[in-house]
Amino acid sequence: MKYHPIPQPDEIEVRVREDAMGAYLMMFATAALGLPLPILNLVAAIVYYYVNRDKGKFVQFHMLQSLYSQIPVTLLNSGLVAWTIVNFVRDFNFTSIYWGYLIMTGVAGLVYLIFSIVGAVKARKGLFYYFIFFGKIAYHQVYRIRPEQTGSTPSNQPPGL
């Protein structure tokens, strides 16, 4: 599989760097809003992506990395909210598996937060920063050279006589 070359820091304009940094900072702006409803964060990230989609591959990479890494965190948080409500409504049966999940979700959120801050700082400096797993997916999706589409133009053929 072939990839487009990635730009060096001196090739990236300040405006582009700031848009890339915004992809991470976006989360902090919506984090407070999204606390009771974690899905709101994700919606904001998706909107940000569509608004800035045409600002180049560097911005796209950082937006996708931020967006993708947010999905599991959002799912974990949503699961926690749902599980907590169920426990409150039903029988207050907060099992150790629940507490374990709560701690794991907290750790995931913290790790996500730290990586997002580092990501924002690096993006501002015009640097790439690859999160484990999500960085590779984002890079693959943005910088992959897509094969030329063939057979897309229709051509006329005579009937077989």
């Binding site: 598996i97 999940y101 750790v107």
Partner: peptide, 9 residues
Amino acid sequence: FGLIWLGAS
């Protein structure tokens, strides 16, 4: 994260 969940549980 599986280990964190398990361990914390």
